[in-house]
Amino acid sequence: MKSITRQKPFDEIKEELEGLDRIYIIGCGTCATMTRTGGREEVLDMKDHLQEVGKMVTGWTVIPTACDEMTEVALRENNGAIQNANCILVMSCALGVHKVNSYIDKPVIPALDTLFIGIEDEPGNFHEVCAQCGQCVLGQTAGICPLTACHKGLLNGPCGGTNNGKCEVDKEKDCAWTLIYQRLEAQGRLNLMRKYQPIKNYQVVPRPRVTKIV
């Protein structure tokens, strides 16, 4: 599993940093490194960019896993440079931004947009596989999630927009329900597709979602 991120346009980052001249940069050694959005190389690039526009970078670090408990330790170790800055620019997914935010009182600015939770099917190619709906239907849909793979999240079969196995939204994209149909047919389980899928409970865990595992 990876948290898939994309770097914000530099102008947007600059705008968020307005009035904040001394910056400490935090990257992440896990997902953001693999997506090449917040690893060592990207952090150093960011440092150069910021210096070019007249910002002072008081220091930087790439935390092994920004959303992990160890983040607190890493921040303590770099306390001097952090104290010297008037804000933290975080180059990780939103999970890391939240984690850093919980330990530091200074403004924490995200440099990345978090797109989705996905997997890498081939190098550099990521796709979303789970919408974290809280009511998994993969057992009935041949392992293809209609909530994520279908643009409309339909539960009872394809819409009229499907054409030769492609989606109305993007002709390059496979229609999720055609894939589900083909796999169920190959497994001899088309009866699952014939079954009425009831309406979804969108409040399995009401937002903001919190749960306690005992």
Partner: peptide
């Protein structure tokens, strides 16, 4: 939105 599909 697509809270429901056409069958639902």
């Amino acid at each position: 939105v697509y809270d429901l599909d056409s069958v639902q």
